[in-house]
Amino acid sequence: MAISQVAIPEVAGTKSAQASAPHAVLGRKTAKKKRVIGIGGWILRIGLTVLFLFPILFMFVSSLKPDQQIFGDLSSIAAFLPIGNISMDNYAAVFDRVPAARFLVNSIGISAITVVAGILVNSLAAFALSRMRVRGKTVILTLIIATLIVPFETLALPLVWWVNQLPSFELTEFGFLFTKGWIDTYQVQIIPFIANAFSIYLFHQYFESIPKELDEAARMDGAGWFRIYRQVVMPLSGPAIATVAILTFLPAWNSYLWPLMVVQTEELRPVMVGVQYFFQLNVSWGEVMAYSTLITLPVVALFIAFQRSFVNSIASSGVKG
């Protein structure tokens, strides 16, 4: 309860400026109380900023220092400042220890394909469910929504067994060669994550808000369904596309449990699985922090650039309930 008591006054403070006139009757005591609360809010804001920012700052700063200096700096503010023996040596060492470039390329490729294919496949399905008369549509939509309550972790183990049974083929010099099992491939890291019930749901919600008169007008002009999808509905769905892109990209980039189980070949691994390399033999924390910074940077850069979309996409995952 202490938590809420700290919290409420902040809402109260919102209107303190306009409200002060009618409140004059209530006297000086309330005004003083409000000022104290306002100061409390700022202390809290800044305290939380330190709490969330400093560990990340520490990671970045440590990635620039040799191990000895990281530990030497711990007891002073220098732990958070890029001073002293600063260099990119840890980054160079990371590329020696781990095929980091390969991992980055893999992760970029896997995420990009998953995002693009996800947008296409899920929006097409949502379009059909929202705009067209299809046999059994209600049942399909209900089944799709029902899968939302299943966490991926409960399916992961049976899924490993299942993808190991699926037929696969590779292109050899003798033509197509059929093999059994998707273990140790790129496709096993991409295809199971393309269709997503929540993405379909989000697109469906958004498409419902686009007036149907628009496609009727397009139909009058002789446009086919695919053309309405491509030239009428999708161009109007920027925010939904951004949301789905972000909600697909984050888990694809951060994926760890799945590739840990289904990818053994080094050349096919994504970035997150690469962390294992740092705990064989002696651990160099400077290098660990450098690798961590390296695989976080792309996401943070995207986040800073598309902040509003990120926040909106997380907020929209709140409608799930």
Partner: peptide, 21 residues
């Protein structure tokens, strides 16, 4: 319309069936 709609639904439904159901 029914055929076109089913065609548009097919990839997603197939993938969900294969990797969730």
């Amino acid at each position: 319309e029914n055929v076109a709609g089913l065609a548009m639904l097919a990839p997603a439904v197939l993938l969900l069936a294969l990797f969730i159901f």
